[in-house]
Every structure is written in C-alpha cells, then in structure tokens.
Amino acid sequence: MDTLLGQGRAAIDLICDPQTFNENTVGAKTFDDPDFGPGAVVGTAKLEGETVTVIASDADAFNEKFPVVYAGIIGMEEGYKMAQAVYATLEADKAVAKANKRPIVLIVDTPGNGPGKVEEIFGMNKATGAYQLALAEARLAGHPIVAMVIGRAISGAFLCHGLQADHILSLDSDFGTMIHVMPLTSISRIIKKDMETLEKLAEGNPVFAAGPRFFSKLGGVEEIVTKIEDMHAAVARHVALVRAAKSQSDEATGPVGRGALGAERGGRVVRPEVIKLVEGQFAAVASAYLPGAH
C-alpha cells in the first residue's frame, strides 16, 4: 500500500487501535440513518487504549439526495453530521476536567465542499462553518484535536475538516497526499504567471505552492509522517504534546499556534509583525475606548 488516497475508512484502523472503531456512536448520540451524510464517517475508537472520537470521509459514498457529494466531498448533511459528532463529544465529556477531555482524531482526505445550486440556495457555507465552530469550541474546551492528512486536503474542505485542529500531521507527498488551495498549474493559469517561474519562486517562498512540505514550512502542518505504519504512534504522540501545550496556554496550538510556528520556520514572518503593529496602534488610543472616556 503506497497511498491511502480515497481510503479514509481503512485508515481508521491504521491510525487508531485496530478493530476498536465503533461507527455511528459518539457518547450518548447514535447516528441511525445510513442515508444521512454518507460521505462523513463518525464514531468512537480507542487510541493507545484511550477513547477518541474519529471523524473521516468516505470517498466511496455517494449522497443520493445531494448528488454533488461523492469522492469524499463534504456536503450539507456531511458538514452538519461532523458538527454533531463534535457536539456529542463535548456533551459526553461535559463533566470531565479540561485536561482529561477525550481526543478527536480527524482523518483528512477530502477534495471540497458541496458545490451545487441547491447547496447555495440553502447555504452550504453554514454547514461547513458550523463544523468549524464546533471544532474550535471543542479545542478551546480542552479536547485535543489531531488531524492526520492521508490524501486530499483541498482548500475550503481542509479549512472545514483539518485546519481547526490543535495539531496537523500529514503523510509525505510520496503517498499522494495533496494539501493546497489549487494545483500550481491552475494558479499559473489564473494569475497568468508561467509554471517555470512559479516553480522557481516556490523554492524560496512556500506561500503559493502545493504540497505538505510547503504547508509545513508555513507552520500549517506540525509534522510530516514518512511511513504509513508510523501514523498511529505519531497521532498518539501528538495527542500527548497537545495536552501538554494546552495546559500552558490556549494559544499554543490550533490556528494561533500554527501562526507562531510559521514565523519560527521562516515561512510566515510578516503575520506576527502586522499583528504587533495593530496591537501597538490600538494601545496608543485605547484609553479613549474605555468606559467613561467619552
């Protein structure tokens, strides 16, 4: 097996403790309708013996009600189903101390959000937004969230399913993993710059090129995993790393943590400068915005 592309279900057993995945149950919630959001796989498994929520995509599923959903696309039902799994996780550990909340493992292989007319009429943007807010809430509540990219992590779908995690791991591009907004060939066409030039520029600037290594340089991926059989240990190790980091600060992981990592790795150095500039400029006028200042 040299790729896991399109094999989200198979990856569950490779990442979690084998044969522990109980699909369609998260805490007290069960997902009983097999036709509901078939592109999303949710359930509970064990990781090194610990109970974890698992959320993945099923590339073989086709949503008959919403035919734009196939090949791992996240449609409206899928987005809300994934959100439900996160809220059920929060509910299940409501009484558990922040440091001991169960992890959520995101197995990432999705090419996009549902791109249809019905989706726009009813608001696909809400479904994907709902899932992201749920993940952010769970992350801030203490649940360690680790995303493992095994295939496609494309643009808005990666924002939806991956980029709200505490830590993101990716199989190396040898395994066919793709992390990008668009392939460089499409970017080349749209921004009207030839491929040769773009490829050359990408050597020094990871900001537009496709692939896990470029995202890693930008802090968008914490660690690249170079062997399929290493995924299990890597995800378990990152759960522990995330717990330790979160016990110190809720800004050490997740999108904010990846911002700092991007600067540290030299890929996104402007971001912290701009944030510092803005904070300084507000600090200079802040007294006028305190109650009673008017």
């Binding site: 809430e137 924002l159 709200q164 999108p255 904010v256 990846r258 971001r271």
Partner: peptide, 24 residues
C-alpha cells in the same frame, strides 16, 4: 472571493485563524 491565489497557503491559514478568533 476568499483566498488570494498569489499567496494561497498563507491566505488559507488566515481564514482558519479568523474563524478561531470568532469562537474566542
């Protein structure tokens, strides 16, 4: 229209950060 393709990866990461700030 969302992400700026000329700096697509940084733009994508910024989206996630904005979403996180909303929850905060």
């Amino acid at each position: 229209g969302g992400v700026r393709l000329h700096e697509a990866n940084a733009g994508l990461l910024a989206h996630a950060e904005v979403m996180d700030q909303f929850q905060r």
